Simulated scan of single mutants.
Amino acid sequence: MRGVVMYAPGDVRVEEREDPRIIEPTDAVIRLAATCICGSDLWPYRGIEPVDHTPMGHEYVGVVEEIGSEVKNLKVGDFVVGSFVISDNTCEICQSGFQSKCVHAEFVAATIGTQAEKARIPQADGTLVPTPGQPTPDMIPHLLAASDVLGTGWFAAVAAKAGPGKTVAVVGDGAVGLMAILAAKQLGAERIIAMSRHPERQKLARYYGATDIVEERGEAGIEKIKELTGGLGAHSVVEAVGTQESFMQAVGATRGGGHLGYVGVNYEVSIPGIQMFFAGIHALGGPAPVRRFLPELIQLIWEGKIDPGKVFDLTLPLEEAAEGYKAMDERRATKVLLTL
Results as ranks from 00 to 15, higher is better:
146 A>F: 09
55 P>Y: 11
71 V>K: 04
5 V>L: 14
129 V>S: 14
135 P>V: 07
63 V>Y: 09
22 I>F: 13
74 L>D: 07
202 Q>G: 04
193 I>G: 13
302 W>R: 00
4 V>W: 00
134 Q>A: 15
242 G>I: 01
114 T>K: 13
280 G>Q: 00
209 G>A: 09
179 M>A: 00
189 A>C: 08
95 Q>F: 06
59 E>A: 10
56 M>F: 07
309 G>P: 13
44 P>F: 08
123 Q>I: 11
120 R>V: 15
336 V>T: 03
176 V>W: 07
11 D>N: 12
307 D>I: 09
291 R>K: 13
214 V>F: 13
169 A>S: 08
47 G>Q: 14
65 E>P: 01
111 T>M: 12
260 L>T: 01
59 E>Y: 04
31 R>P: 02
251 V>L: 15
213 I>S: 11
35 T>G: 14
80 V>W: 00
301 I>W: 11
74 L>V: 09
86 I>T: 05
175 A>N: 03
304 G>P: 04
5 V>P: 05
5 V>A: 06
279 A>C: 02
297 L>T: 06
202 Q>I: 09
265 V>A: 09
340 L>P: 10
86 I>P: 08
194 A>C: 06
108 V>W: 12
304 G>I: 02
159 A>K: 10
272 P>D: 10
3 G>Q: 01
18 E>P: 08
100 S>H: 11
66 E>H: 03
82 G>N: 15
105 A>G: 08
314 L>T: 15
295 P>E: 13
276 M>I: 05
13 R>N: 06
112 I>H: 11
243 T>R: 08
95 Q>S: 15
240 A>P: 02
292 R>Y: 08
104 H>W: 04
329 D>F: 05
109 A>K: 14
25 P>F: 15
120 R>T: 10
222 I>N: 05
168 V>M: 15
119 A>W: 09
213 I>A: 13
135 P>Q: 08
238 V>G: 03
316 L>R: 00
224 K>V: 15
240 A>H: 04
338 L>E: 07
257 G>C: 00
26 T>E: 10
29 V>R: 01
125 D>P: 07
133 G>L: 10
180 A>K: 04
35 T>F: 14
134 Q>R: 15
190 E>T: 13
224 K>D: 15
40 S>C: 06
10 G>Y: 07
249 Q>E: 12
